[in-house]
C-alpha cells in the first residue's frame, strides 16, 4: 500500500491532480477519526480533516519521499487540531471573578459539555462515554492516547508524528492510561 501511495504522490507532483483523490480515499477515515477524537465535534472534525488534506496537497513538494506519507499527513492533521483547540480556549482565568457578581467565579460559567454530572455520564452509551473521557484528558495526553489506541499506531510512529523523543511518548502513554483508569473508576 505504501508503494501505491508513493506512486500517487509522484503523480500529483507531476501535475496530475486526480491522483490525489486516491490518497484522500485511502486516508480519509483515519484522518477524520483523529480530528473527531481530538475536537469532539463532527462539523469541526470534517472541516479540519479536509483542511489537512488541502495543506498536504499544497505543500506536497516539501514532503520528504524517503519518509512515510501517513506520518507526515498525521502530523499536519494533529497540528491543525491542536491549533484549533488553542483558539477555542478562553483567554480568561477560571478562578477570576465574573464582573458584576459577588463570589461567582468562572467555574460556575463553564458550559455543560465540559464536565457532565455523574448521572448523565452513567446513562451514556459506552462509545459516547469513551469519547467523553478522551476529550477530558489534558491536551498533551489526549493526542497520544488517540494515536495509540484509536489509530493503533506504534510508539515510534507517534514519536515521529509529534516530533518528540520516544521516551516522552512512553511517559505520556503511561500517564494518559493512568488518567483514563482513574476517570473510568471514579464514575
Amino acid at each position: 500500500m505504501d508503494e501505491l501511495i508513493t506512486k500517487r504522490v509522484k503523480e500529483v507532483l507531476n501535475g496530475n491532480q486526480d491522483a490525489f483523490e486516491e490518497i484522500v480515499i485511502h486516508f480519509q477515515h483515519r484522518l477524520y477519526q483523529v480530528c473527531y477524537r481530538m475536537l469532539n465535534n463532527a462539523a469541526e472534525a470534517e472541516d479540519i480533516a479536509q483542511e489537512a488534506f488541502v495543506r498536504a496537497y499544497v505543500n506536497l513538494e516539501t514532503f520528504d519521499q524517503k519518509r512515510k506519507f501517513s506520518t507526515w499527513l498525521y502530523r499536519i492533521a494533529t497540528n491543525l487540531c491542536i491549533d484549533r483547540i488553542r483558539k477555542k480556549k478562553p483567554d480568561y482565568y477560571l478562578d477570576a471573578q465574573v464582573p458584576g457578581t459577588e463570589g461567582l467565579d468562572m467555574y460556575s460559567q463553564i458550559a455543560a459539555d465540559q464536565r457532565l454530572p455523574e448521572e448523565e455520564v452513567e446513562k451514556m452509551e459506552m462509545k459516547d462515554r469513551i469519547q467523553y473521557e478522551v476529550s477530558r484528558l489534558p491536551d498533551k495526553y489526549r493526542t497520544i492516547i488517540i494515536l495509540r489506541y484509536m489509530e493503533d499506531l506504534q510508539l515510534q510512529e507517534i514519536a515521529d508524528i509529534l516530533e518528540m523523543p520516544l521516551g516522552t511518548v512512553k511517559t505520556r502513554v503511561h500517564r494518559g492510561r493512568e488518567a483514563l483508569r482513574q476517570q473510568m473508576g471514579s464514575m
Binding site: Q28, H29, L31, Y32, Q33, Y36, R37, E46, A49, M126, K127, I130, Q131, V134, I145, Y149, M150, D152, L180
Partner: peptide, 9 residues
C-alpha cells in the same frame, strides 16, 4: 479504548 468502534468520515 482499543476496541471502540472506529469513526468513519
Amino acid at each position: 479504548f482499543e476496541n471502540v468502534a472506529t469513526v468513519q468520515a
